[in-house]
Nucleic acid binder design. Structure first.
Length: 684
DNA sequence: AGAAGATAGCTTTTT
DNA sequence: GCTATCTTCT
């Protein structure tokens, strides 16, 4: 047992050694929960001589990390996301609930497409069909988070969603079945359904997964909760060997159905549950941890707890007010360059923002200064149009019933098949692909023939891919266009090929395998892993840590978002802030812009209330003088303070108004700034 | 059918 | 301000 608990603290050890029975671990940020979890699984494996261990994570990244760390102990453990685990179960036992082999996964775009067809077909009197699709999609996805089918939907006349919701949902489910497809929510929902109604299957998995671990339990929704209950709860014949780990302060997914009550009520579901709190933080300095703790303490819906650390002192949190977003980017990059000069690497620096759109200002600034950067999780590789086209071809090959994909590619690249011809085939009813096979339209038959010629599945994925490109002439078409966009697409298609080669490098893989991987895990874009500044949203920062963290756009209305303020969701925003702050190991800087360009308008905002919630004992003190007190003529010779370069003196000024630039001498080096940039930091 | 031009909607967050 | 989709023109 010692080999598993060495290097653990008292609490962690306690959690590792509680092998059997229900266990709730309230693990604060940076409290070493992954370390604890992996050690625990290894200990169970050794002590109980079993490999019947399941670990469920929230992201693929977390699954991968855990897999690697468990491998060190040499234990056999099944690790995956809820979606990956459920999908595997459906692949094996899906026939119980009417799923046919080879079913494909529909993502949000496919879902919207299908719903669009349904709305059109129903001829609903809605002003805006696109808005209606969005509304119905939201309603269906919300229902699926709750594990509710169409029948559970109430009908009333309040609005068209509640009036037609049940009908649309029903048709949508039928549509999925006809196309042999399943959506993201359905993966979880159908598995719950399978476990609920087929006792033999349930018993099988209860035996197969004798020890269950769920990470990030605070982010589970009702459907995922039920999944766990069917496998582990006594009332369903479960073994109760289930360990859930989470932190209600880090619950940031309520908007997609996560229910914080799952973790708060765990002790009700398992009255004999052992509860262990991990409150020692091994990541951040006392300054950072103190600031983060004081922010999150403003939430009312939480269990009182306080993290502590051995690391004393550290740099105070720097809170910097900038005039606009250009200045904000400069401020952040100046600080990063300073770290670089101090011998630190760029990959140790991370810039967080609330919305993806905010990445642009930092990308521009990085490019201008030739600082390498990486945007994490922005647009996924398979969301690119040309990649989706290729995937659609393969989806039709694997599953001819997939009419959403079929309609996508029937005229891609353009081959003279118009909407009218497609509509004609559709009007025949039945399977669209079969209607195309029997079409009197020569072009459509030629298309079907081409697809059929691709059906021979011998050879590697890369070879099949080459064949596809050749038969469709996609690359030839793009090359003939000769513009930047088409060249980029050709590049992406080439990159896609190397993704395929990478994917099948270990074991031969089928198209089906690849489709699954790309839908569920994303295509892993393994770039050259340069030493680069990491840019990401606050949400995607979860579970990561960096020595230097820059939280940007700390403005009321942006973060917390206006929407959250209006809807009274401030506590979730504060948790998001807490998550961001606790990613930092050594230094934390929080920046805001007085003004900002937002959807074409200049917006002015106050500093985020979250910054104001940080007591001065954790912050860097800085005296500021109002701009109006400094006249233009007084500028030359003035002493100014800059967040990165320290004190300097203004030597020259050129230009005027907003474009006025000043040269400032810091020690021996002279730097140029926009006057506006300097103003914020003028001190006397 | 395809390209150029116009317009609307967008900014939460993702498996 | 940008982008994606719709409209109009050739």
């Amino acid at each position: 047992m010692n080999q598993y608990t060495s290097g653990l603290n008292e609490r962690q050890r306690e959690a590792v050694m509680a092998l059997d029975g229900p266990l709730l671990v309230l693990a604060g940020a940076g409290s070493g929960k992954t370390k604890m979890l992996t050690a625990r699984m290894a200990a169970i494996s050794a002590a109980r001589g079993t490999s019947d261990i399941l670990a469920i994570t929230f992201t693929n990244k977390a699954a991968k990390e855990m897999r690697e760390r468990v491998a060190v102990f040499g234990s056999q453990v099944k690790i995956g996301t809820f979606h990956a685990i459920c999908l595997q179960m459906l692949r094996v036992h899906g026939s119980y609930i009417g799923l046919k082999p080879g079913f494909v996964i529909y993502d949000d775009q496919d879902q919207a497409q299908l719903l669009g067809d349904i709305v059109k077909k129903l001829n609903l009197a809605v002003e805006d069909p696109k808005l209606a699709v969005k509304a119905f999609a939201g309603m269906i996805n919300r229902a699926k988070c709750q594990a509710q089918g169409p029948d559970a939907q109430l009908e009333d006349d309040a609005d068209y969603v509640s009036r037609y919701g049940r009908a649309v949902y029903t048709l949508y489910e039928q549509g999925l079945m006809e196309r042999n497809a399943i959506d993201f929510g359905g993966i979880i929902c159908q598995t719950v359904f399978l476990l609920a109604h087929h006792l033999d299957v349930r018993a099988y998995y209860q035996r197969k997964f004798r020890y269950i671990h769920v990470d990030e339990y605070q982010d589970t929704n009702k459907a995922q909760y039920l999944f766990l209950m069917y496998l582990a709860a006594k009332r369903f014949g479960g073994h109760e060997n289930c360990c859930v780990v989470g932190d209600e302060d880090q619950s940031i997914y309520a908007w997609r159905g996560a229910d914080i009550r799952n973790i708060l009520d765990f002790e009700k579901d398992f009255p004999h549950a052992k509860v262990i709190k991990l409150e020692q933080n091994y990541r951040s300095t006392a300054m950072i941890l103190g600031a983060a703790s004081d922010v999150i303490a403003h939430n009312r819906e939480r269990k009182a707890k306080r993290l502590f650390t051995d690391q004393v002192g550290g740099e105070p949190v720097r809170i910097v007010k900038c005039q606009d977003e250009r200045m904000e980017a400069r401020t952040v990059l100046d600080a990063i360059v300073q770290k670089q000069r101090a011998g630190r690497s760029l990959r140790e620096c991370s810039i967080f923002y609330r919305t993806n759109a905010q990445s642009r200002q930092f990308e521009d600034a990085c490019m201008a200064r030739q600082i390498p950067y990486e945007v994490i999780g922005a647009l996924r590789f398979y969301d690119r149009k040309e990649i989706r086209d290729v995937l659609a071809y393969w989806r039709v090959l694997v599953n001819p019933a997939d009419s959403v994909s079929l309609k996508r590619i029937i005229n891609v690249p353009a081959r003279g098949i118009g909407q009218a011809s497609v509509a004609k085939c559709e009007a025949q009813g039945g399977m669209l692909y079969e209607a195309c096979q029997n079409s009197e339209n020569a072009k459509i038959r030629a298309f079907v023939g081409m697809v059929e010629s691709l059906r021979v599945q011998e050879g590697s994925l890369a070879q099949l891919y080459d064949k596809l490109l050749d038969a469709t002439g996609m690359v030839r078409k793009l090359e003939s266009e000769k513009n930047d966009e088409s060249r980029g697409r050709v590049e992406n298609l080439a990159e896609f090929r190397s993704v395929l080669v990478e994917f099948e490098s270990d074991v031969p893989a089928s198209i089906q395998d690849f489709l699954e991987q790309s839908m569920l895990h994303g295509i892993v874009e393994e770039g050259p892993k340069h030493d680069a500044v990491q840019l990401m949203t606050l949400h995607s920062s979860k579970g990561l840590e960096f020595p230097f963290v820059f939280m940007t756009g700390m403005e009321e209305g942006l973060f917390p978002s206006k929407r959250a303020l209006d809807d009274g969701m401030i506590e979730e925003e504060r948790r998001l802030c807490y998550v961001g702050m606790t990613r930092a190991r050594e230094c934390l800087m929080m920046t805001s812009s007085r003004e900002r360009m937002l959807w074409g308008r200049r917006h002015f905002s106050d500093v985020s209330q979250f910054c104001c919630e940080i007591p001065s004992k954790w912050r860097e003190q800085k005296s500021e003088v109002e701009v109006s007190q400094v006249t233009q003529s007084a500028l030359i010779g003035s002493i100014v303070q800059h967040p990165s370069f320290g004190r300097g003196v203004i030597k020259r000024s050129e230009g005027s108004g907003a474009e006025q630039k000043v040269s400032v001498l810091f020690g021996v080096s002279e730097k140029k700034f926009y006057y506006r940039f300097i103003q914020s930091y003028v001190s006397i």
